[in-house]
């Protein structure tokens, strides 16, 4: 009789274990691609930016042990960016295992409800250097205005560099880079108006001379990827930056086992 009880008990326990282990693996999170620090799943960043940030992250990790990862996605699958970011830090193990010194810059670009969300998530080890309020300021002053203007490269690289420098200083490591410039306030400053007038005059004079084809120099080319396929007349740089592949040849990112308690700040943009 007792034997039967024991067998039933053991069976029951085994079933419990089986059932619960089957239900805990539900959320669908992306896996890091090819080991890059910049995971541009939404395909919004130019190759130059990806390469630059990848290189910086690699240097930072070698110099301080901290890891900064950039992630863009199309959808957060109904989650808010804060908990999505925390889950990614934990799953990918961003930051060192003991120090938990990882940072994730996450933005979603889809049109579904709850997307266009943004969060910079920080591991416990960097919460002192990067308190929520400070991150909020970086978002308000640099990242959100740039994202709203469609300057995705500037949005990520400015927020990235500010955080990079703060982390470098935290570890007394001398690899800091130049701080980015603040984006222009909305509306037209007098300087902008003057520049626009000059630009209009130049264009006007070129058109009236009948030529116009030879113009596409420096400044213009750089922005062509913003328009996708439309500006195909502008030369060979066209849209190469939007591709999903390029720029991860550096490799380097492998999770260090870091975790996060959910620190950081976010915005809807």
């Amino acid at each position: 009789m007792k034997k039967i009880h024991l067998v039933i008990g053991l069976l029951f326990a085994w079933m419990l274990v089986f059932i619960t282990s089957a239900t805990t693996q539900a959320a669908t999170l992306p896996k890091p691609e090819q080991g890059g620090y910049v995971q541009d799943f939404a395909g919004v960043l130019s190759t130059d930016t990806k390469n630059e940030l990848n290189e910086l992250s690699k240097k930072l990790e070698q110099g301080t042990g901290a890891q900064i990862v950039v992630l863009t996605v199309d959808t957060l699958d109904g989650m808010d960016a804060a908990s999505y970011g925390t889950k990614i830090i934990r799953k990918w193990g961003i930051g060192g295992k003991e120090k938990n010194n990882g940072v994730l810059i996450l933005a979603s670009f889809g049109d579904a409800e709850g997307d266009r969300d943004l969060h910079i998530t920080v591991g416990q080890g960097l919460e002192g250097a990067l308190p929520d309020g400070k991150i909020g300021r970086i978002l308000d002053e640099y990242m959100v205005p740039n994202l709203r203007e469609g300057n995705y490269d500037a949005a990520f690289s400015s927020a990235y560099k500010l955080i990079y420098n703060i982390v470098a200083e935290e570890y007394n490591w001398d690899g800091t880079v130049e701080n980015p410039e603040k984006p222009e306030e909305e509306g037209f400053s007098p300087l902008m108006i003057i520049l626009i007038v000059i630009a209009v005059l130049i264009v006007y004079s070129m058109i009236s001379k009948g030529g116009g084809g030879s113009g596409g120099s420096g400044g213009r080319r750089r922005r062509t990827y913003d328009y996708g396929g439309m500006g195909s007349g502008w030369g060979s740089f066209n849209s190469s930056g939007r591709g999903r592949s390029g720029g991860s040849g550096f490799g380097g990112f492998t999770g260090g086992g870091g975790s996060s308690a959910g620190g950081g700040a976010g915005r809807k943009w």
Binding site: A82, S83, T86, P131, D132, R137, D140, A261, G262, G263
Partner: peptide, 21 residues
């Protein structure tokens, strides 16, 4: 107000930390 924004960020930060915890 910068102070207000900072406080709200810290409050929503704790909210998220509570959610995680």
């Amino acid at each position: 107000d910068a102070n207000f924004r900072q406080l709200m960020d810290e409050l929503s930060g704790t909210e998220n930390r509570i959610a995680v915890a």
